[in-house]
Design a binder for these strands. Structure first.
Length: 847
RNA sequence: GGGCGCAUAGCUCAGCGGAAGAGCACUCGGUUUACACCCGAGCGGUCGCAGGUUCGAGUCCUGCUGCGCCCACCA
């Protein structure tokens, strides 16, 4: 394959088509999800290229903040060092070195998969130009008041030592203990319930609902906390649910988001009792204990004082975990940077609502709306070293200066840059335009924004898609980042379980590439893809696809061996046989169907149609019929070669997006042209099907199948030729097809010494064909009788059903005419079938 | 706790108002010169349960049961 087919041309006059790759982590290697996603993107881009578009499929990678930092820190730990031993600058240097040496394995794996991406435009989120995009949009958002710094309760990972956004927290139902503690004494005491007893060290109030009669008398009073002896007020707050627990809540503003808000409303102090590692800092006996050691210690101390009123164990409740390291997340009061999402999310919702961006499948748009309508502000600062450093400098009085890329950072000893970096998703959100050169107005940006389609899994609809929508619309003055969003499903194992290392059910796509090849792997994945639907993958599927590619290979080889060619003109239809006309019409219908299905992202159905046509129509019937035609003289053979060449040419082009390698080899061999990559996508001729030919081939198929069934029932050897005489072919509309039937049913023309051993009648829609065969007394009467009685029962059932339906006066009144006609035809066929079978049974009885 | 989805052949799924389908698996038979990674013939389903709408319901409505998934600051 010559180079350059996959390089986009920003000066091209062709219509642009652009997909940016969802950037895999630089730490990642190819898993089945990638293989699926890439197969689909490649299919889309290859088809559009064949349709005449100037296609850009842009590859790249994500710097993957926490993930990458973790990998390198682990490496350092192996050397007995921490990142602090190196210092920030040296550590970042080390990460870059790691990337150069071990990062980006996935890029080579993409090459093995055969991705037709434009390598000349490969990007990395930490590229200098993409970093400029990050700084530019940060500055713009800040100046528009959409980025702010505030002290808030955020999700904190005590192991990674960084803030996390909501989506980096995964909830699971964990076992805990709900304990009820008595605060205060006597009439003024109150019982609160908690799962995190240690936080009571930071309590600064008790809250009750204002309308709760039980506690009305306590509102405004004070209560003495056990252990610390601190005195805190009892406040009334609407947020408290009187029906939960005791109806009274301990309030820890520094360590619980709800409590923080209650604290704000009542001007309560926020007492921080834990450090960034999760160790207790409050003075006293618990100081220095880890939060999970402090919890039982606090409970024990309370019990000793007789403060524990009740314990409920186990108590299942949702607990947040760090999505990177699974450590239990700690709500923590700290100063962080936030994006004010409400206005951005509103625009993101509107773009989908008014159809500028279409989500496939449409049902998932509902989830998208749910999400954008309920988004919290986005915490974007991370206490890491690997990532885009926040472009903010603090002056002598901590006066904030925001510096965009156009300005030099302020010099002087009194200025220091914010030490934090941005959430990885911040730069990912810019991907659809930062990769094209934004903020500069490059030719690529003009041409390929908005991107045509985004292909990604529905699991990151919220993580990534929403954010790209928000930032794309914001940065590009209201123009959406993509016209279409195609969401594929998740890959599961054969029993429908999620693939995961811990379950040990992961199928490595690389092993499939080795054993079945890229074509089979890709066809398997494309074949299983329906919009939004998950896919259960099993080894058998890959083997089936491999078999299919092999079938295609053999069929093509056979056609070529027999002189199939695209050089020969396909003759006028008048010169063609019914089989030729039929296969040409079927090919035409296939073109329409497959084109339509691809256009609607119905990859699975498109592959199914291609598979069925190739195997069950082209190979099973047309190739067999073509053998007869090629043996029928030079003229017929020439015409047949032309038809074979044409059908195969179209078929290979249709298959190319999902089976790129094999089709390339076969198509160039067939046509002698340079590459199927730049061949034209087939167009349907629009000529309606030849109904007569279609009916004849359908009749032929029924007749041949019936004869084969007869042979099978009679236990005839498949290779054994049986002398036979046919009559009624014209009446059944099968004029001129005797030789085809003879060949396909392995009959042979009767000789002069022909003696009929058995008579077989086959009812077809237009008449009945009778076949007299000479079995020289080998007919298995019992087998035939058995078969006849089975057929008779089926026909009688059919007759009864159709008559019942037709006998219903309401049916005749209300059903459409074509339905009635169809049912009548079925009734006639069933009736004639019954007559035929009964006659045959009588004949058998006579022998 | 809120939302969404799925229950059709042994398995994975398609069909979404007018004769129950495909692939794989299974059974039987095969040296048929493109292909045993193959060929031919078969077996296999009261379409989760209960109601309802309709001349007609896997297909539309309601309820139930069983599974998924997403979201979630009831301590």
């Amino acid at each position: 394959m010559a180079a350059g087919y996959f390089t986009a041309d920003s000066a091209s006059a062709k219509p642009p088509f652009c997909i940016v790759i969802p950037p895999p982590n630089v730490t990642g290697s190819l898993h089945m999800g990638h293989a699926l996603e890439h197969s689909l993107m490649d299919a889309l881009t290859r088809r559009r290229r064949m349709m005449g578009d100037d296609v850009l499929w842009l590859p790249g990678m994500d710097h993957a903040g926490i993930a990458t930092q973790n990998v390198v820190e682990r490496e350092l730990a192996g050397e007995g060092k921490s990142r602090h031993d190196l210092g920030r600058e040296a550590f970042v240097e080390r990460v870059w070195r790691w990337k150069a040496e071990s990062g980006g394995m996935i890029l080579n794996q993409m090459r093995r998969l055969g991705d037709g991406v434009d390598w000349s435009r490969e990007r990395f989120t930490m590229d200098e130009r993409l970093s400029r995009a990050v700084q530019t949009i940060f500055k713009r958002l800040y100046e528009d008041g959409l980025i702010y710094r505030a002290e808030r309760i955020i999700n904190w990972c005590p192991r990674c030592h960084t803030a996390l956004s909501d989506i980096e927290v995964e909830h699971s139902d964990d076992e805990g203990e709900l304990i009820s503690i008595r605060y205060g004494d006597g009439d003024s005491s109150v019982v609160v319930a908690t799962t995190r007893a240690e936080t009571m060290l930071g309590d600064t109030a008790v809250a009750v609902h204002p309308d709760d009669e039980r506690y009305r008398h306590l509102i405004g009073t004070e209560v003495v906390l056990p252990l610390t002896g601190r005195v805190v007020p009892v406040v009334a707050d609407e947020h408290v649910d009187p029906s939960f627990g005791t109806g009274a809540v301990k309030v820890t503003p520094a360590h619980d988001p709800n409590d923080f808000e209650i604290g704000q409303r009542h001007q309560l102090p926020a007492l921080i009792i834990m450090d960034e590692r999760g160790l207790i800092t409050a003075h006293g006996p618990f100081q220095g204990l880890d939060r999970f050691e402090a919890r039982p210690a606090v409970v024990a101390a309370l019990r000793e004082q007789g403060r524990i009123v009740a314990e409920k164990r186990p108590y299942l409740h949702a607990v947040g975990h760090c999505s990177r390291c699974d450590t239990v997340v700690e709500p923590r009061l700290s100063m962080q940077w936030f994006v004010k999402v409400a206005p951005l999310a509103k625009a993101a919702g509107d773009a989908v609502r008014d159809g500028r961006t279409t989500i496939h499948p449409a049902e998932l748009a509902k989830r998208y709306f749910d999400w954008v309508d309920n988004m919290h502000d986005w915490c974007i600062s991370r206490q890491l070293w690997w990532g885009h450093r926040i472009p903010v400098w603090y002056g002598p009085n901590d006066k904030v200066v925001c510096v965009g890329p156009d300005e030099e950072p302020p010099q002087g000893e009194d200025w220091r840059q914010d030490p934090d970096v941005l959430d990885t998703w911040f730069s990912s959100a810019l991907w659809p335009f930062s990769t094209l050169g934004w903020p500069e107005r490059t030719a690529d940006l003009d041409r390929f924004y908005p991107n045509s389609v985004l292909v990604t899994g529905y699991d990151i609809l919220f993580f990534w898609v929403v954010r790209m929508m928000m930032f794309g619309l914001y940065a590009m003055d209201g123009v959406q980042p993509f016209d279409h969003v195609y969401l594929h499903g998740l890959i599961r194992d054969a029993s429908g379980k999620k693939m995961s290392k811990s379950r040990n059910n992961v199928i490595d796509p690389l092993s499939w590439l080795d054993r079945y090849g890229a074509d089979a792997t890709r066809f398997t994945l494309a074949r299983g893809a329906n919009p939004g639907g998950d896919m259960a993958l099993a080894e058998d599927w890959a083997a089936g696809s491999r078999n299919f590619c092999n079938k295609l290979w053999n069929a093509s080889r056979f056609a070529l061996m027999n002189g199939a060619s695209t050089e020969l003109p396909v003759p006028d239809r008048a010169a063609l046989t019914d089989a030729d006309r039929w296969i040409l019409d079927r090919t035409d219908a296939l073109v329409s169907e497959v084109d339509d299905l691809f256009g609607r992202y119905q990859f699975g159905k498109a592959c199914e149609a291609l598979y069925h046509f190739t195997w069950n129509e082209f190979c099973d019937w047309y190739l067999e019929l073509a053998k007869v035609q090629i043996a029928a003289g030079e003229e017929r053979a020439g015409y047949t070669r032309a038809v074979l060449g044409h059908v195969l040419d179209v078929l290979l082009r249709l298959l190319h997006p999902v089976i790129p390698f094999v089709t390339e080899v076969l198509w160039t061999a067939l046509t002698g042209r340079e590459s199927v990559v730049v061949a034209d996508w087939p167009k349907a001729t629009g000529v309606g099907p030849d109904v007569v030919a279609a009916n004849r081939i359908d009749g032929l198929q029924r007749l041949v199948t019936e004869l084969r069934r007869f042979r099978s029932d009679q236990l005839l050897k498949p290779g054994q030729r049986v002398p036979a005489q046919m009559s009624g072919m014209d009446g059944a509309g099968l004029a001129g097809l005797e030789s085809a039937v003879t060949a396909l049913a392995r009959l042979e023309p009767a000789t002069e010494s022909f003696t009929s051993g058995a008579s077989l009648e086959v009812a077809l829609p237009d008449g009945t064909v009778t076949v007299e065969v000479d079995l020289s007394g080998t007919v298995d009467v019992e087998a035939e009788r058995k078969r006849l009685s089975k057929d008779l029962a089926a026909a009688q059932k059919e007759l009864a059903q159709t008559e019942a339906k037709l006998g219903n006066p309401q049916f005749a009144d209300r059903a459409p005419a074509d339905v009635v006609a169809k049912i009548k035809a079925r009734r006639e066929l069933a009736a004639s079938e019954i007559a035929r079978i009964e006659a045959r049974i009588r004949a058998l009885a006579g022998t």
